[in-house]
Amino acid sequence: MNRNLLRLAAALAGAAAVALPAFAGAYPLQVARNVIMYMALAITWDMLLRSGQISFGIAGLFGIGAYAAVLGVLRAGMSPWLSIAFAAAFAGAASFLIGFLILRLRTMYFSIVTLALAEIFRIVIHNLPEFTGGPEGVVLEGVIMKGSASGLYWLTLGGLAVALAASWGFEKSRMHFALTAIRNNETSAKSSGIDIFRWLLVAFVVTSSIQGLLGGIYVQSYGFATPDSVFDANFTLLPLAMALLGGIHSTIGPVLGAILLGLAAEWLKLRIPYGHLVVYGIIIIVVILFMPKGLYGLARKVSGAADRRRA
């Protein structure tokens, strides 16, 4: 009964999200687009976290996807739609190469390498100015779908749908058991016959491709890319804070966190234009110390306690 109710709520929320352009103005639609994009990034970050690996490389893979899309159009004459698919493929290939080299050593080594990714890609872009446009960046001739507000909104929503589908796929398939087993105890996972390296590589490549895809969508919606705009630390920081606040190791947690923080972020950006990121630093610290399962975990604990009292 409860589960059916949840499904109904999810279907209603989905329908409302699709129908939003019919009754929202340009500004709310723009805000919604931001929230949706960060939500998708938060979900992909959490998907990898379920295996016990922390990636600080969201901005790096997002940015590399963005550049792949722009350069695909400008240098290889791709259509905007094809370039978005190319962004996903390119980020996937990059993450396969990196993951193949480093995923045999995990946790802190993996985290530090991903932390460096945005900086490394940025250096590469800076140093190949003829091809990449260098520090000034590159501009596309136009925005995808001629910049139609509802079109761009639906495109971003499509990116979220991919992330949600992948996340549910992870939850419902063997992937879920493999990743959870690896997170809980690598030794026992290994002795149950799980090929840790292979599963982690798959998870890393899938999540990175989606991050690249979102980078492609982002850049096609704005029509330009500079190293500072697409490798912005925001793209790592916000999704991380959102997933942590909402509750990690689930799909619903990052979704909740993204709605809460995404709306708060818009307000904060207006109030404190410089340094509003400090708020996310504080959120990350407080959540890790006092409610490591996030709001969703807290809600479950409270409702669980209430159930027990009733019984």
Binding site: L49, G52, I54, F56, T107, M108, S111, L115, L237, L240, L244, I272, Y274, G275, H276, L277, V278, Y280, G281, I282, I283, I284, I285, I288, L289, P292
Partner: peptide, 25 residues
């Protein structure tokens, strides 16, 4: 005492707090 993951995220958060705090001030 928490998993290593939490320590990484925690010190990452402290780093953001420090650098963005200075940026803000």
């Amino acid at each position: 005492k928490a998993p290593e993951l939490n320590q990484l995220i925690l010190t990452f958060g402290i780093g953001i707090l420090l650098s963005q705090g200075v940026n803000l001030l």
